[in-house]
């Protein structure tokens, strides 16, 4: 058999490796099993504070419209079905089914016991230090269907 060669450039493919959801889930379960529930939240707060620093600043400057734009972008990439009701002081996000949970269920990846914290803790930390707060109103573990509410503190 002659030598086989595959040459690819980044532009040849779309960056969408959904198995990373399974790897994320495995990491969360590892931290949970080894260090406990609060460690999972501590890790996710550390991630959100570092990664979302520019988005947090956008939210401070432009309000919930910045969050709505970001949310539409990532759910569009993941082909997730969502509805957003953005208002000046409140944003309701309805997620029909979490694309990450659905991918893991379809491909046999275990969903971490505290997977919900990738939404709750990350979003809480995202708006920490801004005029807004976060509430996870509804969450269904099997599909990740959720209703999420961001609102101006004190309203």
């Amino acid at each position: 058999m002659p030598k086989e060669v595959m040459r690819r450039e980044a532009a040849d493919n779309v960056y969408l490796h959904k198995d990373f959801h399974g790897a994320m889930s495995g990491g969360i379960q590892y931290v949970h099993d080894r260090y406990g529930e609060e460690a999972v939240r501590e890790y996710l707060r550390q991630f959100a504070e570092a990664y979302h620093a520019p988005l947090k600043e956008e939210i401070r400057q432009r309000g919930l419209v910045a969050l709505a734009e970001y949310t539409e972008k990532i759910y569009n990439i993941e082909s997730g079905e969502i509805e957003i009701e953005p208002y000046k002081d409140e944003m309701i996000l309805r997620v029909a089914a979490c694309p990450a949970v659905m991918h893991m269920r379809e491909h046999g990846y275990p969903v971490a016991d505290l997977w919900v914290e990738t939404t709750r803790t990350v979003n809480e930390q995202l708006v920490e230090g801004t005029p807004f707060a976060f509430e996870l109103v509804e969450y269904e573990e099997e599909t990740g269907r959720s209703v999420q509410r961001f609102y101006r503190r004190g309203t």
Binding site: Y43, F47, I74, G80
Partner: peptide
């Protein structure tokens, strides 16, 4: 949700 396109920084922070 943490998008799979955001996994790498999450991994690094882990």
């Amino acid at each position: 949700m943490i998008s799979c396109t955001e996994f790498i920084p999450a991994y690094s922070e882990l």
